[in-house]
Write a protein that binds this DNA or RNA. Structure first.
Lengths: 224, 224
DNA sequence: CGACCATTTGATATGGATCAAGCGATGTGG
DNA sequence: CCACATCGCTTGATCCATATCAAATGGTCG
């Protein structure tokens, strides 16, 4: 894995995020803070997984490019989130900074040594894995659904993770969203336009969404 | 003679197929062997998760019925597979026997007590969760693909799990497969017919498939 | 044999992909 | 400070894979 030695840059501000992350203190004690530029690679698919990461600011996507060139986004990570947990020796996905980002980086071996001494740390690790798993489960359900349902579920997921009332600031592009939901960029865009037309949401800018009717949105976006 | 006097209620794990999980010997020592009839409920969505299960014979599906009535199959479990590992207090999916089945059932609390005494058991649990996550991610990749790719990936997965050479015996119906892959029963059936026409597979009966060209099938069914 | 259920096959409809163009911000060089 | 290039997003027109609706066939069990 390569660490990009890049000078820190001012982040464009991202909304306040809920930090649902494991073992903050451990990361804080052990982690080196590293800046990554927009679109910089954090690690590549197939590389040995030597580090764990915690997002301090900015946002990260993991993705995989399929044999035919299609790209599937695996997950988005926001401030407070921990990623790079995969078991097995190597990363199943690549990771990139979506926007300029600062990450706390911890050597896996050091972390696991600490976890062996402290059961609560391994518990936190397990929680983070479980959170990823729950999100993947939810997504499995939503991927069999219509474009509108997927987009609404995505907006609700983001709203839940950023918890800034009804305002949702999306750090990622339409292309990222499309590759996350298994849709095309055009379909994502058209669906958002329709949601605006139905007065379910408002688009203050292309990246800033206001949820105008959460009850109805939940009805559309909630599978079970 | 179905015994669901008890309604054990372990969490199903997200994995498409089995989690090769924890301490088999623990199961063997602690498990009570229970028979379930075809289509008998093992546990229901939303019930508290009190048990872990290991398939001795037969097969099991986990599923969820969405608000609009569509059914999503979460996973199939075959002999040797352990399920009910899920995190959280209650089942996210329901579980049913696909065919008459015998399951070894272990009280979760007993198992967790054993895990507390033995760190390697909790390590196994974490491994199983991470493995489930990886499988869920693999499945997310396949859900964005075409009907043919999904069906082929499914056949290869089943072949890998049952490992009886090129013969694959499917315990589940076309409807189960369709609900697992996010397709309709008609599309699954037509796709199989096409694969026969292409001489990639042979259908000895509707439930018995012979893989005739694994190299080509792998090319179609392998995402990354 | 007859009833029932699973599976296959056929005909048509449709949601989202694809192909293509236009628009609006942001940034850069003159 | 403006003209222009670029990039991300939206909108429009058409196509196609899969869903939907419908019926025939096959397999199993009483």
């Amino acid at each position: 894995m390569q660490i990009h030695t890049i000078t820190p840059r001012p982040q464009h501000s991202v909304a306040p995020f809920a930090s649902q992350a494991p073992a903050q203190s451990t990361f804080d004690l052990m982690g080196a803070l590293m800046p990554y530029k927009r679109n910089a690679e954090i690690y590549g698919d197939g590389e040995p997984a030597e580090y764990l990461y915690k997002v301090v600011s900015g946002a990260v996507r993991t993705y995989k490019v399929l044999a035919d060139g299609r790209r599937q986004v695996g997950a988005f990570y926001l401030p407070g989130d921990v990623f790079g947990l995969e078991i097995g020796g190597e990363h199943a996905f690549s990771a990139e900074a979506i926007s300029d980002a600062r990450l706390q980086v911890v050597k896996r071996s050091a972390f696991e040594a600490a976890a062996a001494r402290d059961g609560s740390i391994s518990r936190h690790l397990w929680d983070a894995t479980a959170a990823d798993l729950r999100r993947a489960q939810e997504r499995l359900l939503s991927l069999i659904r219509t474009a509108e349902e997927r987009v609404v579920a995505f907006l609700l997921e983001m709203a839940g993770r950023t918890s800034s009332g009804n305002q949702v600031d999306l750090p990622m592009s339409r292309q990222d969203i499309a590759d996350y939901l298994g849709l095309t960029i055009e379909t994502v865009s058209r669906t958002l336009t329709q949601l605006v037309a139905s007065a379910l949401i408002e688009l203050q800018s292309s990246r800033r969404v206001i949820l105008r009717n959460r009850a109805q949105l939940s009805r559309i976006g909630t599978a079970a």
